[in-house]
Design a protein around this nucleic acid. Structure first.
Length: 258
DNA sequence: ATGGTGGCACCGCCA
């Protein structure tokens, strides 16, 4: 079972990347963040033609999440109950035995902003949600754009970037607190202590991708039961068919699970 | 270089 995650920065603008990637890689599941499309305008036909079922939750202009799957999807929940602002950042679905929590965690804007406080709260709400509704012995996968670089090897310039909303002590603590529930960083399991593995390159910075000035902000966080079945995990930097400067890329894992 | 550009929907906001 191949499961992937991708921040699209507008799904409709990135169909020319997503559709060929689906065709070439045939994942069982692709979780997408920042679809940036209202549900009424979701590109259902294109996804259907690619051979995928899809559940989604979007809103105008910002955020938006979707889960594409070859197999039927059940147990769908389209908002994090504790988050009363309802910003289309959370989508839960079950595919086969695996519960998938697809999230677009708030970026946070600035550490002294209300949005940063919202970001920290968001992690707390997620921890509360899984505490109440799941157990660590289930095959569960929390994935998506988590907007946190976990450690100094997850950013290209840790000295300069320390204090950024995606790389500072409060967000690292907030993320680890969710992981403490019983989740493991699947990619890091395969490449412990190796720097220079990134999933995001800021397209506003000149040559960020070419010089690998990136961040690791996207994750597959699995319970032990699921992580133990993971045979490989990789960041797919191949789909450079972007007609615009790149942003996030695909993070993929293969699980040996029915 | 503490900037930059792209996306969406509106006359700016967010990343």
């Amino acid at each position: 079972m191949i499961i992937a995650t991708f921040n699209a920065n507008s799904l409709r603008s990135r169909l020319d990347v997503v559709l060929p990637w689906l065709e070439a890689n045939q994942p069982d599941v692709l979780a997408i963040q920042e679809t940036k499309v209202q549900d009424v305008d979701f590109p259902l036909d294109a996804i259907d033609d690619a051979g995928y079922r899809v559940v989604f939750r979007g809103q105008k202009k910002y955020n938006g999440v979707a889960i594409l799957s070859k197999e039927p999807v059940t147990n769908v929940l389209a908002h994090l109950p504790q988050d009363t602002t309802d910003q289309a950042r959370f989508l839960k679905a079950k595919v086969g035995p695996v519960t998938i929590l697809n999230t677009y965690v708030p970026q946070g804007m600035a550490v002294d902003s209300d949005k940063f406080e919202y970001k920290l709260n968001w992690f707390r709400w997620l921890r509360e949600y899984i505490d109440k509704n799941h157990t660590p012995d289930e095959p569960l996968l929390w994935l998506g754009d988590l907007n946190v670089a976990r450690t100094e090897i997850d950013v290209h310039d840790p000295k300069r970037l320390w204090g950024h909303v995606c790389y500072c002590q409060p967000v690292q603590d907030a993320l680890e607190n969710v992981m403490d529930w019983g989740l493991t960083d699947v990619f890091r399991n395969f490449y412990p202590d190796e720097p220079d593995h990134y999933t995001f390159w800021d397209y506003r910075a000149i040559n960020a991708l070419a010089q690998n000035r990136g961040w690791r902000l996207d994750y597959l966080m699995a319970t032990a039961k699921l992580a133990d079945t993971c045979k490989r995990c990789w960041i797919d930097k191949e789909p450079r068919g972007w007609n615009k400067p790149s942003d996030h890329t695909f993070l993929v894992a293969e699980f040996e699970i029915a």
